[in-house]
Nucleic acid binder design. Structure first.
Lengths: 300, 300
DNA sequence: GCTAGTTACGTACCACGTAAGTATA
DNA sequence: TATACTTACGTGGTACGTAACTAGC
């Protein structure tokens, strides 16, 4: 097969029109480069340079070869770079499996944030139920799946499970909120006060609505929607709105007794685990993705 | 830089899923291939295969590398093939210069036929006058030019000239044609009999018309036009048509005294030469093209 | 125990450096 | 004569083969 080093050498000489300068570029001595080109010419059975006069000149055939080589070297450099990134877990393609609900409620968020930081990574997401995903994982057709704990099979040998607790949702109100005066608080009691929350995936609201036998999710009226969590906190602390969010986001306000967690079961759907094979070689990017999942969990 | 051999080896193993089979494909022994892969893994800092079980399996990172490599190897093989053809003068790009007249009258025909036989060749044709073309040739911006002998410079040192005589046109009629009875025959005497010929470039007819002071080339009425030369001969031998063609095309008929060459000056425009540099390395395809030009000349 | 991949070791070759030689301007 | 490329030669590294070893089915 072709020797990319020789081709690179050839390119340097063709570019500089000068063996000595090209040798400096290639970080070898001039005679070594001279040899390299000579051998290349012999292998190709093509005279690349006309050395009969100074400065040396590309032959017509040399020009043709040069044109061809350009693309090849370009592709080679790209592959080299890509592999370097790949080995550091910074590039490549991950095959991720998710259940429909987990993808809707938090999978997209985690992946989105992770991909923003890892712009050389590609992710191929398959949505299926946990049992199917487990099969795909075991067949090594998946690099990582996010499965529902209740559906994970009894046989947990050979798999690595990372719990995802990030998105357990709760309802919060300000201290001194009128609803706190009730002896027993149900979800229905919250409805009149309206809600504050981040842009929830539809699936989450639908699930909560269904859980509490509401005819339509629209009854859960979001008075204020924003991904700016501090804004939502301030709004809740200064009104009777009910804040729907995760505990991690209001930890400080809870400690300062500015917000109160309501004893209402939102029961966000299931407990999830990020699952990988234990006795297989993982994709170099998996540790980074798992770290992102752990951090997302810790934030909650 | 990357080593294409190693990458090829990797591909073989990935394809067969089997070191022994891959070694046979690569025409090396199995331990040698084992080493090759190991070194590649070390260089890439990526584990490509999971050897802990049989059969061995591609790791996720290995899959990623494989995808990347495919294009690279494909391009490399193409370049290799291309260079091989190039060295045999069967592929590559030629930069040809022609005058406007020569390109119209026969350059296109010769190139067309030659390209049909050399389907891997590309030709970049520049049309300019002979002096300009000579400059381009001397500056090695042309591989071959077709120049008008009258415009070629006095200084012919360092250039190689191949005369092109193929297209010297003459007029022919059947033996016993009435026009032969005239004591002196001029071109105007031929007009009433109409003409037979191949599909001439406009430039040629215009030139002939101008030469004989005809108001319009349309007066040279082509009763029959065809690229099938034997059909034209037959038609001419069995009628009073005047055949406009080159001597080579009617050589046999002339020898057999079936056709007669008329003493009429058609003076096809100029004498051309295919010109190349003498003391420069030529494109490998030039001999083949020159041969085609010589053959086209010989046919005439 | 049989198949398949690895490790160990020896060899030949190839790419490179240094030094001397040759050609061009 | 000076610059630039080539040739000659010595060396280290690498890619391969052979043979012995080890591990999975």
């Amino acid at each position: 097969m072709l020797n990319l080093n020789q081709l690179q050498h050839f390119r340097f000489v063709a570019e500089t029109g000068n063996f000595a300068a090209a040798a400096r570029k290639a970080h070898i001595t001039q005679p070594a480069l001279s040899n390299s080109i000579r051998i290349l010419e012999q292998r190709m059975k093509v005279q690349l340079f006309d050395r009969s006069e100074r400065p040396i000149r590309l032959t017509p055939a040399g020009r043709n070869v040069l044109n061809r080589i350009d693309l090849l070297l370009h592709v080679a450099r790209n592959v080299e770079k890509e592999v370097s990134y790949l080995s550091q877990g910074l590039a490549g393609e991950l095959r991720i499996g998710m259940t429909s609900v987990s993808s809707a409620s938090f999978g997209g968020i985690i992946l989105g944030k992770w991909l923003a930081k890892n712009h050389r990574m590609r992710v191929d997401v398959t949505v299926a139920d946990t049992l199917v995903l487990m099969e795909l994982l075991r067949a090594e057709k998946m690099d990582l799946i996010i499965g529902d704990a209740r559906d994970l099979p009894a046989d947990l040998s050979g798999i690595d499970m990372l719990p995802i607790t990030s998105q357990e949702g709760h309802a919060y109100c300000r201290a001194g909120h009128p609803v706190l005066a009730l002896p027993v608080i149900s979800f229905h009691d919250l409805l009149p006060y309206r809600f504050a929350g981040s842009h929830f995936p539809k699936a989450v609201l639908e699930h909560v609505a269904q859980l509490h036998n509401l005819d339509t999710p629209a009854l859960i009226e979001l008075a204020i929607e924003s991904d700016n969590i501090s804004l939502l906190r301030d709004a809740t602390m200064n009104s009777d709105l009910i804040l729907l969010t995760t505990r991690g986001c209001v930890r400080n306000a809870l400690n300062a007794n500015l917000l109160v967690e309501l004893p209402v079961e939102l029961q966000t759907p299931g407990n999830w685990y990020a699952v990988t094979l234990k006795n297989a070689v993982l994709h170099p990017a998996i540790p980074s993705l798992k770290k992102a999942i752990r951090e997302a969990s810790a934030e909650a």
